[in-house]
C-alpha cells in the first residue's frame, strides 16, 4: 500500500457474507477504542451504524459523479462517444447523442474523444456522505440513492471524508465483490468476522482469499462461538491467521442488538473484551509495520 507516512492507520471490518455481526464488532470496537477514532459506514446500500450511535448528523453533502451532457448545436453525430462508452452511458443515434446517467461510470472518455467539443461534464447525484460525532467516535456514513447501482463511487467518497490524523475503522459491505474492494483500498488491516457454521467457514475462506489478493494482513473475530464443529480454529491455525476475539453465543447479545444498544456499553464484561480487541489490533498493526 502506498499510504503516506503521516496518515493514521485504517482497519476494515468485513466478512464473506452478511449477518455475521460485522457491524456489531465495528461499533463496539470503536466504542472501546480508548482514543478518538473514526468509524466509516461503507455499507452504503444499508448504512446501519447510526441506528446505534444516533448522533446528529451534519447536513449530508451530496456524492456526485460527473456525467456527460451534450450540446446539440456542436454535435456532428460522428458517434465516437457511443463507440468509446463500454457501459451504454452515452449512445449515438443518427445525428444525436443520448446520455443515460444511470449507466454512466464517470470515466470521462466521451468528452475526451468528442472531436467537436460538444460534450461537457456535469455532476449527477448518486448518494450522500454525512458526518457526526458520538463520544470518541467520529462517524462518516455513506448512503446510496435508492435505485442507483453504482456503489464504489459512494464508498470512495466516504474514504475521502476520513481525516488523516485519526485512526479509522471501516465497516465494509458484505461479500467479496467490488464494493468490498472499494472499501479495503488503502486500509492497513482487515478484521474478518465469522461464525463457527459451515456457511461462516466457507465465506471466511472467500474473504481470506480476497485479503491475500490485496496483500492485507488479517485477523478473525468469531461471533456466536460455541462448539467448533466445522474446524474453524484448525483452518485459522493452518492459514496463520490469529483469532483476536471469540464472542459467546449469548442470546442477551441479540436482544441488546435488537433494541439498538451497544453490548460493550450495556455489559462491562463485553466492554472489556472489546477494549482487549482494540489493544490486540494495535499490536498487530505495529507488528505489520504500521504506525499506530
Amino acid at each position: 500500500m502506498e499510504a503516506s507516512g503521516k496518515r493514521s492507520y485504517r482497519i476494515a471490518v468485513a466478512s464473506g457474507k452478511g449477518g455475521t455481526g460485522k457491524t456489531t464488532v465495528a461499533l463496539n470496537l470503536a466504542a472501546m477504542f480508548g482514543e478518538p477514532v473514526q468509524l466509516a459506514d461503507c455499507d452504503v446500500e444499508e448504512p446501519n451504524i447510526n441506528l446505534f450511535l444516533r448522533c446528529d448528523q451534519l447536513v449530508p453533502p451530496e456524492v456526485a459523479m460527473l456525467v456527460p451532457q451534450v450540446d446539440p448545436r456542436h454535435c456532428n453525430g460522428c458517434g465516437a462517444c457511443g463507440e468509446l462508452c463500454q457501459f451504454r452511458g452515452i449512445v449515438a443515434i443518427g445525428s444525436r447523442a443520448l446520455v443515460f446517467p444511470e449507466l454512466c461510470h464517470g470515466c470521462g472518455g466521451c468528452a475526451l474523444v468528442c472531436p467537436s467539443g460538444a460534450i461537457t461534464e456535469r455532476p449527477h447525484r448518486i448518494g450522500t456522505v454525512s458526518t457526526g460525532q458520538s463520544g470518541i467516535i467520529r462517524l462518516v456514513e455513506g448512503r446510496l440513492e435508492v435505485g442507483v447501482s453504482l456503489v464504489p463511487p459512494v464508498i470512495r467518497a466516504v474514504r475521502e471524508q476520513l481525516l488523516d490524523d485519526l485512526p479509522a475503522i471501516l465497516d465494509a459491505p458484505p461479500g467479496t465483490s467490488c464494493p468490498v474492494v472499494a472499501t479495503l483500498r488503502e486500509c492497513d488491516y482487515l478484521l474478518l468476522v465469522t461464525d463457527p457454521t459451515p456457511f461462516g467457514l466457507h465465506d471466511l475462506k472467500l474473504a481470506v482469499a480476497l485479503a491475500r489478493e490485496l496483500n492485507l494482513a488479517c485477523g478473525v473475530v468469531v461471533n456466536r462461538a460455541g462448539e467448533d464443529l466445522v474446524g474453524l480454529h484448525g483452518y485459522c491455525r493452518s492459514e496463520n491467521i490469529p483469532i483476536l476475539l471469540s464472542l459467546p453465543d449469548d442470546r442477551q447479545i441479540a436482544e441488546v442488538l435488537s433494541r439498538g444498544e451497544l453490548v460493550a456499553r450495556v455489559f462491562p464484561e463485553y466492554g472489556l473484551m472489546f477494549a482487549e480487541l482494540a489493544a490486540k489490533l494495535k499490536q498487530q498493526l505495529a507488528a505489520a509495520g504500521g504506525t499506530p
Partner: peptide, 8 residues
Amino acid sequence: VACEGCSV
C-alpha cells in the same frame, strides 16, 4: 482490481 474497464 481497480480497473473499471472503461477503455479510456
